[in-house]
């Protein structure tokens, strides 16, 4: 554990908590892509199956349980409890275009051809593109509430901080995982356009609004 890794995890945790607070306080999931949230739930379920087979640390287990619970909880809030506020007309990204290629890729490019390893690889590939329905929704409506922007910024920062963690681990521990690194870089790059808008608009007190 290094400072970048910890900061990344805390950023990830903050993103999830911001999203839950937004939905709970406003009793609404307007502006949030249910499809991205379903993809994140699939990501966590397929990645954290090792909760049952391998104990790493209390920290590791607690975070995994929280990520699993919160992602499934978010899907529940969006599709059941606050279903009426879900903006499904604008949430139209076809997730099979993400699920099928990432599933195929995980069968071809993996460290080991075993069920656990393929599911882990699939979750890494899927996570890298899981935000696309959300970004597509923002671009379709042309705007995002400030709280949604903070959520996206925290979520994007998390994988960016993980890249610094991987650089650190490569130099100081000789450890690297090429699958995680490449997918993590793709994931971070997808947020670049949003980061630019966040820094130039939201941090200056303006609403995130795309040019017409």
């Amino acid at each position: 554990m290094n400072i970048f890794r910890l900061a990344g995890d805390l950023s990830h945790l903050a993103a999830i908590i911001i999203l839950l607070i937004k939905i709970w306080k406003t009793r609404s999931c307007a502006g949030i892509s249910g499809r991205s949230q379903v993809l994140f739930a699939i990501v966590f379920i397929t990645r954290y199956l090792d909760l049952f087979t391998n104990f790493i640390s209390a920290y590791n287990t607690a975070m995994k349980v929280f990520f699993l619970g919160s992602s499934i909880g978010t899907v529940y809030l969006m599709y059941l409890k606050f279903k009426a506020t879900y903006d499904h007309n604008h949430d139209t990204f076809r997730i099979e275009f993400l699920l099928l290629p990432t599933a195929l890729l995980s069968l071809v490019l993996n460290h080991e051809f075993s069920v656990m390893e393929i599911l882990w690889t699939f979750s890494i590939y899927l996570e890298s593109v899981a935000i696309l329905p959300q970004l597509f929704m923002v671009s379709k409506t042309g705007e995002a509430e400030s709280i949604t922007s903070h959520y996206l910024f925290a979520l994007g920062s998390y994988r960016g901080l993980y890249i610094l963690n991987w650089i650190y681990r490569y130099y100081f521990e000789g450890f690297y995982d090429i699958i995680a690194i490449v997918a993590g870089c793709v994931q971070t790059i997808l947020y670049c356009d949003f980061f630019y808008l966040y820094i130039t608009k939201v941090l200056k007190g303006k609403k995130l609004q795309l040019p017409a």
């Binding site: 460290h111 075993s114 882990w120 995680a180």
Partner: peptide, 10 residues
């Protein structure tokens, strides 16, 4: 090896 058994990241 980078198998599941060694994965400590989230």
């Amino acid at each position: 090896c980078h198998c599941s058994s060694e994965k400590d990241e989230l």
